[in-house]
Nucleic acid binder design. Structure first.
Length: 298
DNA sequence: CGGATTTGACCAGCGC
DNA sequence: GCGCTGGTCAAATCCG
């Protein structure tokens, strides 16, 4: 029951992972005895101040408010992505993506968080689901610019799920922080309705003292047995992400309503993102770990 | 004393 | 089949 991220966790194991001298800790959700949710916490090998946390499973109980707040950014981004999909919205409150990853880069400690298999989406996605195809998020009080990198799959005939790739950028206009709150969520969907979502999220409600104001979300659906990017190697994966980040400054943002100044904000945010070595190393570490999992059958 | 953490053992999956 | 690795179990230990 350490590291308060809104839920109660009990440590049940620790292992030294290959290639990383830092031990990986295993936690179980203790909010409900029958709750299957687990999380893994590991320090980034490149930067010991970076924590990579992986969540797996679905809470079978209501989440505490603090956890809700924390998870809201993830589901908000996820919902945006989801809302970008086709018209069938009645069951969209459940994101097809199940693994999401938050990198919370605080001033002293950075934490990367991976939510696997839809642990937060049930109670939260409904709450933050945007019924309309809007790319500006107000639910999180962060204006959101959506960069739609939609790449429809011509070979797929399925219409049951969203079939697109997109990138969402969300920037907080809220008061505070010299620390730039930004939010990038990139979703990727391959053929079989498999859905991957990368993002950087701002974190306003800080239930966790070690959680900073920056976050990254990787969202990936494990409810479909196929691992994401199973054909991609790590370098491809990482360059893909870097590409997204670096190009986001030059991509024409799909600002639906407004905000000329947002463009500048995007540029500034992008600059901050790309020039932040901690973020890059966290991103690389988490992605490496993530891809490794995916490749090994996750 | 009860609950949380630690830590070595055990097990399953995977690659060779 | 064997060894490696990651994940989990459970007894021991710690701590409030």
């Amino acid at each position: 029951m350490q590291m308060n991220d809104g839920c109660q966790w009990r440590k049940y194991g620790q292992k030294i992972a290959k290639g990383n001298p830092c031990p990986r800790a295993y936690y179980r959700c203790t909010v409900s005895p029958s709750c299957p949710v687990r999380k893994q916490v590991q320090r980034c090998i490149d930067d010991m101040s970076i924590l990579i946390t992986t969540y797996e499973g679905t809470h079978n109980h209501p989440l505490p408010v603090s956890a809700t707040a924390m998870a809201s950014t993830t589901s908000a981004a996820a919902s945006m992505l989801q809302s970008r999909s086709t018209t069938s919205s009645s069951n969209n409150q459940f994101l097809p993506g199940g693994l999401s990853s938050n990198f919370f880069a605080g001033p002293s400690t950075t934490s990367a968080t991976l939510f696997q298999s839809s642990n937060i989406r049930q109670p939260l996605a409904q709450q933050f689901y945007f019924p309309n195809n809007t790319s500006i998020s107000t639910t999180t009080s962060h204006p959101t610019v959506t960069l739609d990198l939609t790449v429809p799959n011509p070979s797929s005939s399925s219409h049951l799920g969203p079939r697109y790739s997109s990138t969402c950028l969300s920037f907080s206009s809220s008061s505070s922080s010299s620390a730039l709150p930004w939010n990038i969520a990139t979703s990727y969907n391959n053929n079989n309705g498999y859905f991957t979502n990368y993002g950087i999220m701002s974190q306003q409600n800080k239930p966790n003292p070690i959680v900073g104001s920056h976050g990254l979300v990787i969202n990936n659906d494990r409810s479909h047995s196929k691992p994401p990017f199973q054909e991609a190697n790590n370098s491809l994966y990482q360059s893909y992400l870097k590409n997204i980040i670096s190009t986001s400054s030059t991509t024409t943002a799909t600002t639906h309503n407004h905000q000329q100044s947002l463009t500048e904000t995007i540029a500034a945010a992008t600059k901050a993102i790309t020039s932040n070595p901690k973020f890059q190393s966290a991103l690389a570490a988490a992605l490496t770990s993530f891809v490794g999992k995916g490749e090994s059958g996750l």
